[in-house]
Design a protein around this nucleic acid. Structure first.
Length: 569
RNA sequence: GUUCUCGUAGCUCAGUAGGAUAGAGCGUCCCCCUCCUAAGGGGAAGGCCGUUGGUUCGAUUCCAAUCGAGAACACCA
């Protein structure tokens, strides 16, 4: 929007000077000197074998000679080694503030092309309770989906439940052991039973090889349609999904599809036939594989595993089958996998196999490999008793910590408390770059001061209190009243480029960072511009417009971070 | 062993299509509630951006080496 216009003006000036290069205008990293800067003098100097300062002088001269240039820039200055510094005119800033204010999408252009992003971000396993490790894909994936959507692209979210792997064989083994003399039709159990059965069976399988073999056999038979196993499997899924939906609903995470791996099982034979037909399947140690090593590779890469030596399918099989199926059904332009980064080798294998099989000629496959949540020892977080922390427990802990902060917090409605708990957890997570591990600290997850979700909510609510009772009577004038006011308006303009970058890099943290800095600036404004009893009607009206726009943006960005706003704090 | 990722303030983290004086939060110290909720605002202290070289006008960012931490490495997911 506005940045394009600035770029166009400067590029035009460069052209007039005889430099054929597209100008790059960036937000100033010296706000004390300017609003925006252009560092192209160095590049041009090298390209045309000139002195950067001489180049800069030429460009600045050209710019200043353009007609009506003062309507865009208050000041253009060439500094030291070769930076061109720009200060925007009030006129220019307000022109775009008005555009943002008068459109429901803040003046951002709707995307013309119908790009579809298929986002796979659940990764929860049936029959296993959600633990802290499941929090990240849920939050990051949901936020990414909303950001991409907001930028104008189409999205589909898929929970991709782990409903067909070995863990199901293990749980079924446990059930058969616990209900030895009961007809399978009459076996009934609940979520609490499942919660304790999986960990117990998992432990048993690690200790006892025979049990493991039996579980593998059950897994294979289940895949082949053994009716008793299928019956139990259906009950496990039903109970488990109900509980998963409860927790995901608490987090505000929703999927377009609650598909599991099992969904793509019917298509596996067709896919295998397709792969065999291509002649890329080989047999290795009794298993069917697709070699994926390329000539340019330096490193060793294990082949893609299509079929185990006992004929059973595994994780890699279903992932490839899912790609095969998704391409047929939806033909997405991008498939994003929001999955723990420890699985990066797995995804490299799957992506290479898909590419080798020419399944995705015009589709990008991306692994959003987020880091693990670690304990103080640098290993994935465990509770004091050595177990993984359940997501339910984390939420409860955060809630208790919040209630204990202030006596009055206990008077808040449940709904408001839950919104704040969500804000604490999500903002603490999403402000990080997802590729990195972070250390879990319950104290950090109970803090409401500083760079936290509650700080953002508090800012929104205090601004809302000012603007809600004052009507806007006139359009925005062309004035900017002081530096706090100006800083706020400049920050508002940045919105579009933040969203664009967040989509490009798949980074919700950009949105979180911007939202926080916007709140810092608006709090600054708040503290220094007392508004309710202001005599200057015009100034008051202008400020109400600015604050209303600011709060509209804060609200939208909070939604992109999957955070809802409570009624009071 | 091979490959990959990461070393930034006391702590937890932002930041790189190479740019001017490296930013936050917490913690520490000081100041601000007659006035839109102080879950707020202002200020101070705190850094050889792991180390050593290289590339260049310029490197936290790119390259190499080195030290340190973590992860992955075919029939689990």
């Amino acid at each position: 929007m506005y940045l394009e216009e600035l770029k166009k003006i400067v590029t035009y000036a460069l052209e007039k000077c005889g430099f054929v290069i597209e100008a790059r205008i960036i937000i100033s990293n010296r706000p004390d000197l300017c609003d925006y800067q252009c560092d192209d003098c160095f590049k041009i100097a090298k390209l045309y074998h000139k002195n950067p300062i001489a180049v800069g002088e030429e460009i600045v001269k050209c710019l200043k000679e353009l007609t009506n240039i003062e309507e865009t820039f208050k000041d253009i200055e060439l500094v030291k080694p070769g930076f061109i510094n720009f200060k925007l005119s009030d006129n220019f800033i307000n022109k775009y503030i008005i555009v943002m204010n008068n459109t429901d999408h803040f003046g951002m252009q709707k995307k013309e092309k119908d790009e579809l992003f298929y986002i796979d971000y659940g990764g929860a396993n049936i029959a296993k309770p959600l633990h802290v490790g499941h929090m990240r894909p849920a939050i990051i994936g949901e936020s990414l989906k909303r950001i991409i959507n907001f930028a104008g692209y189409k999205t589909l979210g898929d929970a991709h439940l782990g409903d067909y792997g070995l863990q199901l064989g293990e749980v079924i083994y446990g059930i058969l052991r616990d209900f030895p003399n009961t007809d399978v039709q009459n076996i009934k159990f609940d979520i609490a039973y499942l919660d304790k059965t999986y960990p117990a069976m998992s432990k048993l399988c690690k200790e006892n090889e025979e049990v493991l073999k039996e579980c593998q056999k059950i897994t294979k038979d289940l895949q082949d349609g053994n009716p008793n196993y299928v019956l139990l499997w259906k009950q496990i899924c039903e109970i488990s999904i109900k509980d998963l939906k409860r927790l995901y609903a608490y987090l505000g995470v929703d999927f377009d599809f609650w598909y599991g791996e099992s969904e793509c099982y019917p298509i596996i034979p067709e896919m295998k036939e397709y792969l065999e037909h291509l002649g890329i399947v080989e047999v290795s140690n009794g298993a069917k594989v697709i070699p994926i090593k390329e000539a340019t590779d330096q490193k060793e890469l294990p082949p893609f595993l299509l079929e185990k030596s006992d004929g059973a399918s595994l994780y890699s099989t279903t992932d490839l089958a899912c790609i095969y199926e998704r391409m047929q059904r939806f033909n997405p332009n991008h498939i994003l996998y929001v999955v723990d980064k420890r699985q990066s080798l797995h995804f490299e294998q799957v992506f290479r196999a898909a590419k080798k099989a020419n399944m995705t000629p015009n589709t990008s496959l991306e692994h959003i490999g987020f880091g693990t949540i670690n304990g103080p020892d640098g290993k994935p977080f465990k509770t004091r008793s050595g177990e993984t922390l359940k997501l339910d427990q984390l939420i409860t802990d955060v809630k208790v910590a919040f209630l204990n902060l202030k006596e009055t917090n206990k008077d808040m409605s449940d709904d408001d408390i839950n919104k704040i708990v969500n804000a604490i957890i999500k903002f603490a997570d999403l402000q990080n770059n997802w590729s990195r591990d972070y250390i879990f600290d319950i104290e950090k997850f109970s803090s409401v001061i500083g760079k936290t979700g509650p700080y953002i909510l508090y800012t929104y609510l205090r601004i809302n209190k000012i603007i809600k009772d004052i009507d806007i009577t006139k359009d925005l004038t062309n004035n900017i009243y002081n530096e706090y006011d100006r800083n706020l308006r400049l920050k508002l303009l940045e919105l579009e480029s933040i969203i664009t970058d967040a989509v490009k890099d798949r980074m919700p943290s950009y949105v979180a960072e911007y939202l926080y800095s916007l709140c810092v600036i608006v709090n600054n404004f708040y503290q220094n511009n007392y508004l309710t009893n202001l005599d200057d009607k015009q100034k008051k009206n202008d400020w109400i417009i600015i604050l209303t726009l600011t709060n509209r943006i804060i609200k939208v960005l909070l939604n992109l971070l999957v955070i809802d706003i409570p009624t009071v704090m």
